[in-house]
């Protein structure tokens, strides 16, 4: 059972972000970190491979400047090896370009049974890459998994919905996006952290993956600050406030 986990190395959210002159998130500042939403996929993959009794967890990441800090965090958790796509030509890549690159990297990994990804990254938030990767590979796409099981060449997930979950199954190989909470990510052991530095890292360019004429695919025209929150409505309690609150919640369709 070989599982690829798509992991994104993002600027540390604890450090205020900056934009480049062409409106992209500046990524060459401080060390990147593993997107926390990807740590769930890494943990899930480790558990699935462990349960299968053989195979390995392979990380795939696309990042500028040969960035490996975030990959090392995932390798420390126990992943066996990583494929890093680092190429200036991919700077500012849109979701589809990213997906093309990742799909090719999955093929390069070889013998992959399952691809796991977070439902969306914590910096880009497009939430479209997992499904696009599945389409490009011609594999089934299962999304928003809060539980994943593998048996008899099939993957079965519980797909999180507003009211509960759907049970969705597909044949392998497949691409599954997992939610935070699918499993509790482990803390890397000290041994894991020390071993991570010497694990195999396959750094490639787009051309190495056979993508010879690829470009960002988008340009960001402008970035505006999110509008300030509007002042809310104040309800003074004259004994009937609860009725107005109930009406308000009903209008929002939350009750």
């Amino acid at each position: 059972m070989n599982v690829v986990v798509c992991v994104k190395q993002i600027p540390d959210p604890a450090v205020p972000g900056e934009l480049t002159s062409d409106n992209r998130l500046k990524r060459d500042g401080a060390k990147a970190i593993l997107d926390e939403s990807d740590s769930y996929g890494v943990e899930m993959a480790l558990q699935l491979v462990d349960k299968a009794g053989s195979g390995e967890v392979i990380l795939v990441s696309m990042a500028p400047n040969g960035e490996v800090s975030g990959l090392r965090q995932a390798l420390a958790m126990g992943a066996a090896r990583a494929i890093l796509i680092s190429d200036d030509a991919l700077a500012g890549a849109d979701a589809l370009t990213t997906s093309k690159v990742i799909a090719k990297a999955v093929e390069r990994a070889g013998g992959v049974d399952l691809v796991l990804a977070a439902t969306e990254s914590s910096d880009g938030y497009t939430g479209t890459v997992p499904a696009q990767v599945a389409e490009l590979l011609g594999w089934p796409s299962l999304t928003f998994a809060k539980h994943v099981e593998i048996a008899d060449g099939k993957v079965t997930i519980q797909r999180q919905t507003e009211n509960g979950y759907d049970v969705v199954a597909a044949s392998l190989p497949a691409v599954v996006s997992v939610t935070a909470g699918v499993v509790e990510p482990r803390y890397p052991s000290f041994k894991g952290i020390m071993a991570a530095k010497s694990k195999p890292l396959d750094q490639v360019t787009a051309a190495d993956l056979g993508l010879n004429s690829i470009s960002a695919g988008q340009s960001i025209v402008s970035v505006d600050a999110a509008p300030a929150r509007q002042a809310g409505e104040k309800v003074e309690d004259d004994g009937t406030a609860f009725e107005r609150i109930v009406t308000y919640l009903e209008e929002l369709k939350v009750i």
Binding site: A76, P188, F190, I193, K197
Partner: peptide, 16 residues
């Protein structure tokens, strides 16, 4: 100990 490794170990304990 490699200072980079030391920093990673320390960060890992801090997070824990």
């Amino acid at each position: 100990t490699d200072p980079e490794i030391r920093a990673e170990l320390t960060a890992s304990v801090r997070k824990w």
